[in-house]
Design a protein around this nucleic acid. Sequence first.
DNA 1: TTGAAAGCGGTACCAG
DNA 2: CTGGTACCGCTTTCAA
Lengths: 343, 343
Amino acid sequence: MKATIYDVAREAGVSIATVSKVINGKGKISEETRGTVLEIMARMNYQPSVIASALTGKKTYTLGLLVPDISNPFFAEIARAIEDQSQHYGYSVVMCSTDNKDKKVEKYIALLLQKSVDGIIIATGIDETVIMEQLLSKSLPVVLLAREMPHAAVNTVVVDDYVGGSLAADHLLGLGHKHIAVLGENIKVISSRERIRGFRAKLADVQIPMREDWLKYCDYRIEDGKQKALQLLQTEDRPTAIFACNDMLAVGALQAAKESGVKVPDDLSIVSFDNTILAMVTDPQLTTIAQPMNEMGKLAVDLIVDELKGRKNVKQRTVLRPELLIRQSTASRPGRRLPKEKK
Amino acid sequence: MKATIYDVAREAGVSIATVSKVINGKGKISEETRGTVLEIMARMNYQPSVIASALTGKKTYTLGLLVPDISNPFFAEIARAIEDQSQHYGYSVVMCSTDNKDKKVEKYIALLLQKSVDGIIIATGIDETVIMEQLLSKSLPVVLLAREMPHAAVNTVVVDDYVGGSLAADHLLGLGHKHIAVLGENIKVISSRERIRGFRAKLADVQIPMREDWLKYCDYRIEDGKQKALQLLQTEDRPTAIFACNDMLAVGALQAAKESGVKVPDDLSIVSFDNTILAMVTDPQLTTIAQPMNEMGKLAVDLIVDELKGRKNVKQRTVLRPELLIRQSTASRPGRRLPKEKK
DNA sequence: TTGAAAGCGGTACCAG
DNA sequence: CTGGTACCGCTTTCAA
């Protein structure tokens, strides 16, 4: 079948130890043998087996990536960034879609461990206590991406959700909006909570209280965002702006607005979060708080690789700044220049 | 570190051979020893190393997946289907985004081979002769997904692009359109060519010739679709309908229409291809020829697994039927009920 | 500079 | 039923 190190050694008339050395550039080898061995390897089209060398205590050059769903554009884009950077260092990445189910998370982590991956990037919700503890005790490089676990000693790369939320609020406030609703993700998602916290704080700064009945928690589907937005819009007294905690939910809001005959951005402004491809595809295009997905993926891989190379052993938490991207889904509050319309 | 089979054997007071047997359910083991070994394994939290067993000639339980770009919704959705089905059989999947560059394809394939993956699913453009030949000679299960290679003996799963094209044409023709333009992918992409061929044939059936200057080839970006559509729309004599060979291009067309003040679907109908999430997010939502992405992914994995299990060794080509999904981007030809508007 | 040999963690054949 | 043992393909001392 495939050529092995033995075949090369025999063909080159040297020992496998010698071949191994030229492969890895270790030890002292005369230029001459080095040359012949190299030549033979090329001729035989020899490719060392990663499996075998991994067994000898070396690395598998494989990383695991846990996301809720690779088909979700946000995670797909993150995955691409991670893949590129991994590839750059010679690593492959195994994708694992968990649907945020603890059962699946556990199963996947066990699988990755059995396959001796060199590191794991976790971008999925996870049951802190049980699973992570095991994982960290394995002395396996782990980084949390777009997820937080305040109490664990683990490398983390996140966007500053609080700032992101304030940015959204500032923008809407600046446009004169006072009646603002919020579409959040599942309440268990910390990042979403932080976004809302930052958002709420800014409103408080200007004495505009957030109506609690205008804060809706949604699951992950567009449809759910739409339903919740519909509840918001189909009342007399409706908000003039909505802050959606991700692009999917914003799409739902957009659809709800259309169905309710509410014009965006004229009658309703929408700010979303993430800046995935979805934000560019809707009509109007979404004004959004952009997450630097490329940098996030890149950083996560760098952290793993640094740890594998033995440099950097203190855990760090990197917080990237999100950025307001003004597109077409936001505009001045309806009737801003006019006398008050109600009351 | 991690417990090995030796640790378990020692602890259980048996030989590693025995442990190996209970792990794999092979050979005859007394219920009693079986019980203790199992118990010890559980207590020690022992997980056999896939690496080690792979080295012994067994499988790595890993599949490689080559796509042009995992962040492209079409491939992200395919990837999800593949991942689920792989997981079902106990396989992991390594993702490889090639950007359709031969260089990257080669690099990735070499990497996958070194890692001894058990099979490769190719959903990316690829230089037939050079690479595939090598690959197939390796007696490694390979399946082509959403790609064709007419002359190679390789399992293939595709959608019937020709039929898809005709479906699109039928729909548009049925709505009374006679002036139809086409946005195709790069001319080298066979599937796109087939879609156009099927489309063209239907037009020919009713004596409506396709204007060659209304057939535009685009690259993969929304922006390019938009530019080409702009050329189409910003002339006196413009088409009343556009058939876009994928959702991205259709989005571009939609944007071009908006920029040109052309209303979709009133003044312009658009039919796209794929039915990714993008088709549901645009406004109006896209009428599209849906590819059964889930089935495609599932089938591809099944083919690999079947081959690995030794059953089914004759190569097969499975052609799935696409389906017209009518949404909001198509409508009757403008002025259909009215007397001819021009001439 | 080179090579012999001892693993790495399992599998599987063969003897007992 | 159970265990001894020869590999799998490669890395890494340690001698020569």
